[in-house]
Amino acid sequence: MMTTTNHTCPYACTFLTTNGVRLHTIIAGPENGAPVVLLHGFPEFWYGWRHQIPVLAAHGCRVIVPDQRGYNLSDKPPRVADYNMDALSDDMLGLLDALGYERATLVGHDWGAAVAWWTALRTPERLHALVILNVPHPGVMRRYARRHLSQLRKSWYMFFFQIPRLPEWLIRMRGFAAGRRALLTTSRPGAFSQEDIARYVEAWQQPGALTAMINWYRALFRHPPQRLPHGPRVRVPTHILWGKRDAFLEHEMASLSRDLCDQGRLTFFDDATHWLQHEEPDAVNEAILDMVQAHKEA
């Protein structure tokens, strides 16, 4: 394990080897604190949890925030198959192993939430609790998209990303304007500053990052998740948080997802979008801390 600091990261930045890759990982908070892993989605990186890291750490949590494989400073395996759901979940389990944790509270947004769901379904014994932001249970997503053309329309970009090389070429040719626009036009005003956008563009420009990030979508189509060994029900205590103004995912899937959880809660935010942790940071922090505290008291 190597620990460094640099001008773009105010925390200890560690490179951890897990499941055959090195993940650039932020670690904050007391060493004996309850472990909480924060998983970002597309097109973010660890910085997407900037409103959560200091608050959780100040409340005594050991906060672990990786750049997931393919993103920012983490390794970027070359094959599409390297981004299948089992591999992404195994990255998180290996991260816990590398840090010596048997179990942790897992928090995910967007693709990070998909990894969190999958990890809870595959290996519930490794998790204390699950906090999900604006992504449905994987089984719900498949069924709902087949039956609702409105959701398929919102997912158009997933199909566009299946084209080899063209999406990357267009994004680069236009100076990453599509990424900037996606963040700014689908979020509440003020959720992302120009400085924030500059940080994202810097991460997207890392060698190999753009193709690696898009390969997550390609792997979903070409190497879809296999049957779960324990069935579709989530046995880990779960709190789903959902901004109803999500431009990408319909909120009706949130209730269907909660219904597949043995110990599930659901909180809607009427005025929030897909970028919930940026727009409602205090509420998200409180929900995470409540789940950590509930585990301590159990």
Rank of each mutant, 00 (worst) to 15 (best):
R233N: 07
Y11M: 02
T185M: 07
P10F: 13
A209P: 01
A212V: 08
T123W: 14
T123L: 12
P30E: 14
Q52I: 02
W46M: 01
A177Q: 12
H148P: 02
L99Q: 11
K154M: 14
G94M: 03
E125W: 12
C61I: 04
M141C: 07
A212C: 09
P229T: 06
T17A: 15
L241H: 01
H137G: 00
A113C: 06
L166F: 11
E31L: 10
R188M: 09
Y200C: 01
V234H: 03
E195T: 12
P224D: 11
L184A: 06
G264F: 05
Q277L: 13
V140W: 09
A58M: 03
P35H: 07
Q226T: 09
L184S: 08
I27M: 10
S155R: 07
R265T: 05
R227N: 11
L130T: 08
R258G: 04
A98H: 12
H251D: 13
K154S: 08
V65F: 09
W156G: 00
T238S: 05
V36E: 05
G264L: 02
V80T: 14
P164Y: 12
G48M: 02
G190V: 10
L289T: 01
E279F: 06
S193T: 15
P124N: 10
F248K: 01
L266A: 06
T238H: 05
R103P: 00
M1P: 12
G48S: 14
P78D: 15
G179E: 02
F268A: 01
P232V: 06
T267A: 13
L260A: 03
Q205G: 05
Y47P: 01
S255L: 14
K76S: 07
G41C: 05
V140E: 01
R181S: 12
P136S: 08
V236H: 04
Q194K: 14
E252W: 08
H274Y: 14
H239T: 11
P77W: 05
G179S: 05
C13G: 04
T3P: 02
T273D: 08
W242R: 00
N19F: 06
N72E: 04
A98E: 14
L88E: 03
H109Q: 13
G139H: 12
L289G: 02
G20R: 05
R147Q: 15
T267K: 14
L56M: 03
F15A: 07
T185E: 15
D196H: 13
A254Y: 07
A177T: 07
D97F: 04
G208Q: 07
I171K: 00
T123R: 15
D97G: 05
P281D: 10
L152P: 00
I240E: 03
Y101C: 06
S193M: 09
H40Y: 11
L149D: 10
A191Y: 08
G231V: 09
L96F: 03
L152H: 02
S187Y: 08
A247P: 02
L127Y: 06
D86A: 10
L276D: 02
D290Y: 08
P237K: 11
W49K: 01
R218P: 07
I132H: 01
E252Q: 13
M2W: 11
F176N: 09
P229S: 07
H230C: 05
T25H: 11
V115H: 00
A57K: 04
E279S: 00
R227E: 15
E125Q: 15
L149S: 07
K296P: 00
W46E: 00
V80F: 13
D282K: 10
R218Q: 13
T18E: 09
P229D: 08
P78M: 11
